[in-house]
């Protein structure tokens, strides 16, 4: 059977034809993927979850509730809109503008972002964690402080900003009973520890940027942070399912925030730095003092 065999000829013909059909298809799919993923300007509206079993819309067709048995996302109640507007004008408008559309970024510190369409979870997280209103708007990364506004006031601001252009992610309510802490530990090591450290204490990252400590953060705020990606943090949307986010949240709110420390004092989770200080100053130090005590002193 030579190269001129009809079977070979036919196979070659089909291959070439197939290639002509497949190549544009592959190109099209690739382009579609590329269009979907733009790291510099991601559409904030794609932050939903691919596996929402519950989707509830209001009369206007806006999604007001979605989620599944792991995390339920709710829109802030619209009756808070007026309160939110008043609070926004009082606390936020001086930087973000009266229409919450911010001051365009010009590459310098102190450009105030556009808040429209970011989703209520974003606004709620920044306000309820005390980062906003910022004490020093010129700082590169606002840090967590004692909140100026109550959780309800934060929710009101989120409600008003959301009313300008309804979007997601909505305010999450994680159902920790359905979480798997073991998967959470593995996901934490893979996705979070590279900045927040494996013990969740946070650390300085680069010039004026840092990863905050994960202690004393309520579960819903952990979900908000993962889904909205505040400051330097990447926004985990499609790459982590609601179940996985819930697992991480469970690990953070249990083992990270309340480590069992069966070995005694945890030494602040600083690892070998703290251990070295204790070993040298307390360990060697005390034993040298014992030497001084039992030896002859001149």
């Amino acid at each position: 059977m030579g190269l001129t065999s009809p079977l070979i000829k036919r196979a070659a013909l089909f291959s070439v034809a197939g290639l002509f059909v497949l190549a544009p298809g592959a190109l099209f799919v690739g382009a579609a993927h590329a269009a979907n993923y733009n790291p510099t300007e991601t559409s904030r509206r794609d932050a939903g979850t691919p596996n929402s079993t519950i989707v509830i819309k209001n009369k206007a067709g806006t999604v007001i509730e979605y989620g599944n048995k792991y995390i339920l996302y709710n829109a802030p109640p619209s009756k808070l809109d007026n309160l939110g507007k008043a609070l926004f004008m009082e606390n936020c408008a001086s930087c973000h503008g009266t229409q919450a559309d911010g001051i365009p970024a010009n590459g310098t510190v102190g450009a105030y972002p556009d808040l429209v369409g970011l989703g209520p979870a974003t606004v709620d997280f920044w306000v309820v964690s005390g980062r906003m209103p910022s004490a020093n708007p010129r700082v590169v990364e606002a840090s967590r402080r004692q909140p100026r506004l109550t959780p309800n006031q934060a929710l009101a601001i989120a409600a008003w900003v959301n009313s300008l252009a309804p979007s997601i992610p909505l305010i999450p309510t994680p159902n920790l009973a359905n979480a798997n802490v073991s998967d959470g530990a593995a996901l934490f090591a893979l996705n979070c520890a590279s900045c927040h450290t494996i013990e969740g204490d946070g650390d300085a990252l680069a010039a004026s940027t840092f990863s905050p400590s994960l202690r004393n953060i309520p579960a819903y705020q952990v979900v908000e942070a993962i889904r909205t990606g505040p400051a330097n943090m990447p926004r985990f949307t499609g790459n982590l399912s609601d179940q996985q986010v819930l697992d991480v949240t469970k690990y953070v709110t249990t083992e990270i925030q309340h480590p069992n420390n069966p070995g005694g004092f945890g030494l602040g989770g600083l690892g070998p730095v703290a251990e070295g200080f204790v070993g040298l100053l307390l360990g060697v130090g005390v034993l040298v003092l014992v030497c001084y005590w039992i030896g002859e002193r001149e």
Partner: peptide, 15 residues
């Protein structure tokens, strides 16, 4: 005494 009261190298947290 030190080992009974001060935790060192909690590898279970590190994974």
């Amino acid at each position: 005494l030190l080992s009974a009261f001060a935790q060192i190298n909690p590898i279970w947290q590190f994974g």
